[in-house]
């Protein structure tokens, strides 16, 4: 396929995915509101266990005692990861349910091209949702403010985080071709991220979670983003973290590509594409 034809297929897949997304507008509303609502149990838990909105033990671990802001930033940034996991990782399984998987496999377009279209559509919608959440949160008294000087490095970190993560999601999509029923696995992966990256708590509290978290790009991105937004730190080792994320991106993209191609080939060879 020529480059123009590939770009056209990606554009068509993006348009299709976004059209399906907006066929259920309530889903868009849901993703804009509920990730922030999921944070509330943690805020109440903090109030019950500490008795105030600041914790000295928390400050020792993170540099800031404001656990509410800590959790809200985690919730916003993790949106990108989870939408990728559900929107890209689970997307081929959805096509199986819709009865359209065989058409994708039989079309002259490589399934990877279709996945890139889905990835771009998912990234566009999530970016709009997170921008909306950030605007609302910055207007409420949580101690979070956004300025251009803060937003630009944060955007760089988010892009670097997403490039690698979508590599992982593409590999996961290949996994869905193989084992079929992945709904539960997506949920488990979601919770593995909650457990081993500092989305909802500082992972330094336990040496095992601290060790494992270093292998996850989300950890590095969150530490730097919180440093910029919460602690007003100009020097959070941005270039060092950029380098680490770039290296992780390279590994995840290459590994994601080869894993997907290998799993897709195996599924075709086994003749199990149409199986449920």
């Amino acid at each position: 396929m020529s480059l123009a034809a590939t770009a056209s297929a990606i554009r068509a897949e993006m348009a299709k995915t976004i059209r399906i997304y907006f066929s259920y507008p309530i889903i868009v509303v849901f993703w804009a509101i509920f990730p922030v609502l999921w944070v509330f149990p943690f805020l109440f838990q903090g109030k019950a266990l500490v008795g105030s909105y600041s914790s000295s033990a928390f400050q020792q671990l993170t540099g800031s005692g404001n656990y509410m802001a800590f959790i809200l930033i985690g919730a916003m940034v993790s949106n990108f990861v989870f939408s990728g996991l559900w929107g890209v990782g689970n997307s081929l399984r959805e096509e199986t349910y819709w009865g359209t998987m065989e058409y994708i496999i039989a079309s002259p377009t490589h399934p990877l091209v279709v996945l890139i279209g889905k990835t771009l559509a998912e990234a566009s919608v999530t970016t709009c949702i997170v921008a909306l959440q950030a605007t609302i949160i910055s207007l409420l008294p949580f101690g979070i403010s956004f300025t251009v000087a803060k937003v630009l490095p944060v955007l760089l970190l988010v892009v670097l985080l997403m490039v690698g993560f979508y590599g992982f999601a593409i590999a996961f999509a290949g996994f869905t071709l193989l084992i079929k029923e992945v709904h539960g696995w997506v949920h488990t992966l979601e919770w593995v991220f909650f457990l081993f990256s500092p989305i909802r708590y500082p992972v330094q509290v336990n040496f095992i979670t601290e060790f494992v978290s270093k292998l996850i790009p989300l950890t590095w991105a969150l530490v730097a983003i919180r440093g910029i937004i919460l602690l007003n730190q100009r020097d959070v080792g941005l270039w060092r973290i950029t380098g680490i994320l770039l290296a992780m991106d390279a590994v995840l993209l290459v590994a994601g590509y080869f894993t997907f191609v290998a799993l897709e080939r195996k599924t075709r060879r086994d003749g199990t594409v149409g199986m449920h």
Binding site: Q45, V50, F58, L61
Partner: peptide, 25 residues
């Protein structure tokens, strides 16, 4: 799953209090 679900709540609590026991609770 249930173990993985539970641990972030427990570890978050420990991080807030700095230990297992909360005088406020």
């Amino acid at each position: 799953d249930p173990v993985v679900y539970l641990l972030p709540y427990v570890l978050y609590g420990i991080a807030l209090v700095g230990g297992r026991f909360s005088p406020n609770l």
